[in-house]
Simulated scan of single mutants.
Amino acid sequence: MDLNDRKRKILQAIIDEYIGTAEPVGSRSISKKENLGLSSATIRNEMADLEEMGYLIQPHTSAGRIPSDEGYRFYVNSLMRKYKIGMEAVAQLQSVLETRVSQLEKLIRYAGAIASNLTEYTTVVTAPKEQEFEINKIDLVPIATQTVMLIVVTRTVRNKVMNIDIDSATCMSLANILNEHLAGLKAGEITFDKIQDIQKDIENRLSLHPKVLIDIMHFVYETITDSGETEIYVNNAKSILKYPEYNDVEKAEKIFTFLDDKENLKKLVASSDADGIEAKIGKENDFEILQDCSLVTINYSLGNKKAGKIGVIGPKRMNYSKVFASLDLISNEIDKILNEYISDE
């Protein structure tokens, strides 16, 4: 059933009030604080209707109402006011991120910390999956007799010292062949046929033992897949203790145990697959331990490709408008900085 304008305003007022107080909201409280032009009796009747429709819950017979998961969902989708981040906070964010751009991992870590500071909730950030990146360049540099350094450049740089007896000219020629065939490819595009083509090209142009290519390709492939194990960083896990929902010691311990398990967090963040910002409220979360929590996530990109996520975990009565605005701002800043950085390489 669609909500009429009066019910929408009352539901919005109740959720706004509950987000701020964590106390069940009564009709008198709404009639005093909100300029609705309605009596307490009218508001009480509307609240009863909203409860019957599934948007509100009355935790105790004599208590006011609190939002249900469905109430929060309707609020996020249809009622939430837009939150504006202050210019001072925006300037600080830009300054901190720009000074960390030279180290991608630190940039992502700081972004998570900033998100936690802005929202005052726990944040979870996933680092880029290396296998999603293309090979930018391969280089071979002789560093001693029968010793060569193999350098593979993606969005990061990895190198390996190899025992190969080739001179500088051969190193350069071999690197040129590898770049001709592999530059711009990702792991899934390096097929067995592609490796055979490279081997044939090497045989036609150079005199090298086949094992050389096998060793090189093993490291190249390892470079773009090995670090595909998603890194995940948690910020401000202890923030949950600030909220009365977690005053129960046993409940808080279970949450801390969950947040300490990176495999659970990877599954949690991976379960959010929307292109833009997404909120999973209460029972929408896949983990039972988070049935009283909400998770809001957003992607950030590298070269117009999804690279990772920033997520905020908090009580269901979290300040959604502030969280949405904060994550949107941080994601846009990361995208801008990283894409500028990539284009300059």
Score class of each variant (00 low, 15 high):
I334K: 01
K194T: 12
G112I: 08
L3P: 04
V161W: 01
S326A: 15
D273H: 07
D344M: 11
F324Q: 01
A307I: 08
Q146R: 13
N304Y: 11
Y233F: 13
I166K: 02
E253I: 07
V25W: 02
L107K: 03
T257A: 10
L50Y: 01
M47N: 03
S31T: 15
L302E: 10
I198R: 02
Y243Q: 04
A111H: 03
I198L: 04
I108W: 01
A183Y: 00
N45S: 14
K283L: 10
S27N: 09
K82N: 11
N176V: 06
N339P: 07
S95Y: 12
K254N: 12
A48Q: 10
F133T: 13
S39D: 10
K200A: 11
Q291E: 15
A22D: 12
K186M: 05
F258M: 06
I108E: 00
F258R: 01
T191A: 05
K7N: 06
S343Y: 08
L3M: 05
D344E: 13
L118I: 07
I108A: 02
V269K: 02
S227M: 10
M149L: 08
A41S: 14
L97A: 01
T61P: 09
L3G: 04
A91Q: 11
D344H: 11
D273G: 07
F133S: 11
E88G: 07
L11E: 05
S239P: 00
D286A: 14
G71I: 14
V323R: 01
N176I: 05
F258V: 09
N4D: 15
L208R: 05
I342Q: 08
N45D: 10
E70A: 15
L185R: 12
L241K: 11
K238R: 09
I216K: 00
A13L: 09
L327W: 03
S39A: 11
Q12T: 12
G112M: 07
I85K: 03
L185D: 03
R155S: 05
S272E: 05
N4G: 05
V249A: 07
L327P: 04
Y341V: 09
D248F: 05
E284W: 08
G308M: 05
A91P: 00
D49W: 08
I202G: 00
N35V: 08
S78L: 04
E105R: 15
L268N: 02
I198V: 14
A325H: 08
Q58V: 13
C293M: 15
T154S: 06
